[in-house]
Amino acid sequence: MPAYIARRFMLMLLTLFGMSVLIFVLLRLMPGNVADILFDASGFIDPAERARIEEELGLDQPVVTQYVQWIGALLRGDLGFSYVSERPAIEEILPRIPVTAQLAAWSLLFSVVLGVPLGVISAVRQNTGLDYALRLVSLSGLSLPSFWLGLLILMAFVQWFGFIPIYTETPATPWDGFLIYALPALAVGFRSSALIMRLTRSSMLEVLRQDFIRTARAKGATEQTMNYRHALRNAVLPVVTIIGIEAAFLIGGLIVTETVFNIPGLARFLVEAILWRDYPIVQNLVMLIAVVVVAVNFLVDMLYAVLDPRIRYAD
């Protein structure tokens, strides 16, 4: 088990290193550098000013030095400087973290609470009308873009209540928070729950085919014991790993949904930074997202190891 953790941890660091190189290279592939773009935006070119900014950004240094400086700054917690708001990026990013974290938490909760039980029911009632209905629902869930679903929800609200429930101010109480986040979480979570449901179903069906289910049946186990005690326990193992994939899935949904619901979170901030060509922010935000996704996957692997005795007791 410790060896397993160590190995997974090293792999995580390696992935993050690769990620940082990828992001660094990608953002340097862009035509022109940041200084060009800044001047492009203002439409005014003063060579001296330009050189000064390039120096300030370290763009006159060799690429490797630039990379090392960037990583060094990141490790010190220095997320750079936004050229749009002209404030340190950390001041922009920090207040947005709880916003996105809450939205993500609600979405995840929603998708798991809906996805896992429906997936189990669908598998246990395989090839019945209920199973077909649930499969169609999950397939349409995967087919509806979150942003469109979000817009439809807004439309329904306008129709029924005459107002648009989009974010205007920071919610004061948890209840207000729920009200603000519930609808966007529904838009993000519906799609994710469809994914979880499909995976739970196929995982459950796979387990129900196993020999030990036959053993349980031969033992005289009831349908409930078989489905929940024997099958579900094995079926949730792969579903747990899905939560890792889910993290990446959710972020995609958050990006469009925060835009639709006007939520001042990190995901929308990334889109804005890209649109404004605020590349230092883009570089650090993408790296932050990568860290979160990789860390979630690492934690999921650890959780998997705890849940699966075959890994827990492996040496």
């Binding site: 899935f249 972020i251 995609g252 993408v286 997202i289 996957n297």
Partner: peptide
């Protein structure tokens, strides 16, 4: 591993 660690939409965005 690296390419799969980034959400599809984020990678496409960048």
């Amino acid at each position: 591993d690296v390419l799969q660690a980034l959400p599809l939409l984020v990678l496409a965005l960048v």
